[in-house]
Nucleic acid binder design. Structure first.
Lengths: 233, 233
DNA sequence: TTAGCCTATATGTATGCACATAAACTTGTC
DNA sequence: GACAAGTTTATGTGCATACATATAGGCTAA
């Protein structure tokens, strides 16, 4: 076993990872402090700091001032998954993208949406329904509410040539959001739109976004059966 | 509008975010270089660098040497989602965790698993099936293969008192992995185990892990209907 | 015109130093 | 013995500087 050269924070990082992986440092163990490691590796403390911070971001190390750095006992692995723009996602797979606007109208928002967007009772919001196609086959059904007090311009947007998602990315931004993933059974309406059997299992993404505390939009994306979301770990 | 004080990379970060969000710097725009920003903010270039790197990690900025830093045209939002240990996930919701081992045996792996683990034809692997309960109700069905050439000790592990997941976290680590999420219909067997109607929509997580290129384990987690995976954006 | 080389430039990273900050630990006081 | 105050210590961060590295864009030569 040769001692490989440590230069650069990435090398420090992989050396640390090795020690964790090889159980030289076991889960729960306190590891040496930055200064000592820096001396051992013959680099500056800042370099060790960078490496340790990077690992801590993945959840494999826990760091606390004064208490030091320890190997996480029950590492909650963090996976970063990219939420793509649907058109991109389809085009990257070399499929032909198409898009159809089903409806776009001002409507009184239902209670759930009102609560989520903190709208007054009877307040209207902009409801958009659309389908995205990959190679001519329905790919995802988009069911969206847009808060017109936050994004008034949506009412006059040309949503026939540009999907709401893309329009919003261009014309509105958000500061906060949350996203949820579930499995559902396709109800008759969605089944019809996606052209699948009623009762098929569909993958659903629900996303809400806010800008400075004001609701921007709330979408439910229902993917055609077979959709698979994946990422490296 | 008061010019707020810029001190610390977090302040720089939020100022930059403001400028993006307020469209002072529009998608596609090239922003000033680090040195100029450092001068403007009255801080060191390293501080600006730290802030810009952090933002770039979220996907809102794109950086390339010599080319500079620009606001991402089609920001692919990155969400980091935590893959929890099931017991933790359940206990954090203040539910009572329970676990039942259904089977654990050496078996010839099917073709798909063999291919994924790069096993020889006829090679055996350790197959584990188990159910995790929350408040006495089936929560998730775990269907797992473990590579015995990578993790031989699994054969003698006490999987009645500790779930395979926890055992593996303690006794084996991994260097790479991938994870996929899909929606499926519960087949009769799974439906029976989870005590739900056949044909219910279930959320499925499939995860494969490797250590130094050698397959460690491959698991399919089938969650009871209603499961919702969520995260901030 | 084009292919290949060169160079200026913006980001990437390392270093040594300093000080800030949180929190575990010690000491002191009632 | 319990609580408060002070001390110590490991990480968190900032700065100035230096050099590394990728590469866009210009220059040169075939």
């Amino acid at each position: 076993m040769t001692v490989r050269e440590i230069n650069g924070w990435q090398a420090v990082q992989s050396e640390i990872l090795n020690r964790i992986q090889s159980r030289q440092w076991k889960p729960g163990d306190l590891i040496p402090n930055e200064a000592d490691l820096a001396q051992e590796f013959g680099c500056a403390r800042a370099t060790v700091n960078r490496a340790l911070r990077a690992i801590a971001e993945t959840g494999l190390l826990e760091r606390r001032r004064k208490a030091g750095t320890r190997v996480t006992l029950h590492p909650v692995r963090r996976a970063t998954l990219s939420i793509p723009i649907i058109r991109q996602e389809i085009e990257e797979r070399n499929h032909v993208y198409a898009y159809t606007l089903l409806s776009a109208e001002l409507k009184v928002a239902p209670a759930g949406t009102r609560a989520q967007m903190r709208l007054d009772q009877g307040a209207r919001a902009f409801k958009i329904q659309a389908v995205h196609f990959a190679d001519g086959k329905p790919y995802v059904f988009e069911d969206r509410w847009v808060n017109i007090s936050t994004v008034p311009a949506i009412r006059t947007a040309d949503l026939k040539s540009m999907s709401p998602n893309e329009w919003l990315v261009r014309h509105a931004s958000f500061t906060d959001g949350d996203i949820a993933f579930t499995a559902e059974l396709a109800d008759p309406k969605v089944a019809g739109i996606l052209n699948v059997d009623q009762g098929a299992a569909v993958f659903v993404i629900e996303r809400n976004t806010w800008i400075d505390g004001k609701a921007v939009t709330s979408v439910k994306l229902t993917f055609a059966p077979g959709y698979r979301m994946h990422t490296a770990l």
